[in-house]
């Protein structure tokens, strides 16, 4: 599979990354190189192989429904680029 400029632009949109024309060209080239390399996986027949989504074979890990203290509002907001009256402030969101 080969990707073109439009696809790269689409992926960039999905990734919330804005590319300059130059970057777009660079990424088309580099991503195609990588995808070409990845193609080698198709040499393998994996029809009857189970996917490995987890590195651990443990299951059923839970915590109890027990309250723990939240953190002080000051710590919540200290790293925020913009705040207002205890809220995080962002550019207007229109649905």
């Amino acid at each position: 599979m080969k990707i073109d400029k439009d696809q790269v632009e689409n992926i960039a949109k999905l990734s919330r990354i804005r590319l300059t024309e130059l970057e777009r060209e660079m990424f088309v080239h580099q991503l195609n190189n990588i995808l070409f390399y990845i193609e080698k996986l198709n040499k393998l027949d994996t029809e009857n192989v189970a996917p490995m989504a987890y590195t651990s074979d443990v299951s059923n890990v839970f915590r109890e429904d027990k309250l723990k203290p939240s953190i002080p509002l000051q710590d919540v907001l200290i790293n925020a680029p913009a705040t207002k009256s205890g809220f995080f402030k962002v550019p207007k969101v229109i649905e």
Partner: peptide, 21 residues
């Protein structure tokens, strides 16, 4: 888009895009 484009370097962008693809 601008925050992420200005905040991340090229390698990170490349991997995020590959991953999303």
């Amino acid at each position: 888009c601008r925050t992420r484009s200005e905040g991340f370097g090229n390698e990170v962008k490349r991997r995020i895009m590959l991953g999303n693809y």
